[in-house]
Design a protein around this nucleic acid. Structure first.
Length: 341
DNA sequence: CGAGTTTGACCGGCGC
DNA sequence: GCGCCGGTCAAACTCG
């Protein structure tokens, strides 16, 4: 049961208040999928979670009917099995769902919310010649870009799932960390302001803390590292990071944890359901990525409703395969009611 | 030859 | 004002 703490953290992060969360936990249908209940002191142990609002997730999708947080936890985990990492201009959310969900919350919930200070106004450039002024101005522009920040903790396997093309432009030793931090910028488009910082976690060297700043000014490449002739950074691991590390293959759906692991006996029926849901998950993740990248690229997009299964479909899936009656429409209405408050 | 990486230098922010 | 620190630049280098 305790294996689900992170699941609840993710789901809870979609609620505006702890009260909303508790209400949902008390709903019989929802609690069916979220059997674990937190003690009050456990809830208060992670106040930062409640600072994260639904708008933080899937930023840019406002105004659409899409509202992923109303899925009950089991479905939420199934549909969005990895990190929810969308930030607004003022708040950054870091939600990491590890493949092995065995660790206590304190070890896993790290930096949840960042508040970036606005840059101080007219930082005058010390005159070291025209080049310095131009350079400083460039730097100022790029640093202005940092007001949007997304922090992600990933395993080495997940590094290869980054579909953007990055070019390394620096590496620095960081005080307090035995591992250097690498700096990358998007190499797909010249004017793209997207940046990425990668640093091996000092607490868990098998994972990396990745910070994304800025936004891509272009659609996502159809395939990762799709630059012509570029084969040099396939592993996405800088030299210093690769010591004793074999090249990892791309993430597969097989590696994504089952939401039922550890709490339900395995069976062929469940395997079938998991398989079907995994297929949907892969399609949905790709759809969401495409949608987000195309928003950035100002490309006309189909209605968001076309990208995800209807609630009726999901209800049918639950009923047919798990024999679990559940009214997701009620959940949606419940969360819409919360939204309008 | 083009694209990515390495690495020392430079810059601005911040705390003292 | 000074020094530390993180982020960036850019020349040199590497690789396919």
């Amino acid at each position: 049961m305790e294996d689900y703490w992170d699941l609840q953290a993710v789901v809870r992060s979609g609620y505006n208040t702890s009260e909303d969360f508790e209400n949902t936990m008390n709903n019989p249908a929802t609690s069916l999928f979220a059997p674990l209940s937190f003690e009050q002191d456990e809830l208060s142990a992670f106040p930062e979670i409640f600072e994260t609002t639904r708008e933080d997730h899937f930023h840019g999708l406002e105004g659409t009917n899409y509202s992923p947080s109303f899925y009950p936890p089991m479905l939420h985990q199934t549909l969005f099995p990895q990190s929810l990492l969308i930030s607004t201009t003022t708040t950054t959310t870091h939600m990491s769902i590890p493949k092995e969900v065995k660790q206590p919350p304190a070890q896993m919930v790290q930096r949840l919310v960042h508040q970036e200070k606005p840059l101080s106004g007219d930082a005058s450039c010390s005159a070291r010649g025209v080049d310095s002024v131009i350079r400083a101005d460039k730097m100022k522009k790029s640093r202005k870009n940092q007001h949007k920040k997304v922090v992600q903790e990933v395993t080495e396997d997940d590094l290869s799932s980054d579909k953007w093309a990055w070019r390394k432009y620096g590496q620095k030793p960081i005080k307090g960390s035995p591992y250097p931090r690498s700096y990358y910028r998007c190499s797909s488009s010249k004017g793209c302001l997207a940046r990425k910082q990668m640093e091996r976690s000092s607490t868990d060297p098998s994972t990396f803390n990745i910070t994304y700043t800025g936004e891509h000014s272009h659609p996502q490449p159809t395939r990762r590292n799709s630059l012509a002739g570029s084969t040099r950074n396939k592993s996405s691991l800088p030299k210093g990071f690769k010591a004793n590390e074999p090249n990892k293959s791309s993430i597969t759906m097989d590696s994504i944890p089952s939401p039922t692991t550890g709490s339900m006996a395995s069976s062929t029926e469940e395997d079938f359901v998991q398989q079907q849901v995994s297929i949907k998950t892969e399609q949905q993740e790709q759809s969401l990525e495409d949608y987000e990248s195309n928003i950035n690229g100002n490309i006309a997009m189909p209605d968001i409703d076309e990208l995800f299964p209807s609630l009726e479909d999901l209800e049918g899936l639950l009923l047919d395969q798990l024999n679990v009656p559940c009214s997701l429409m009620d959940h949606q209405q419940q969360f819409q009611a919360v939204d309008t408050r």
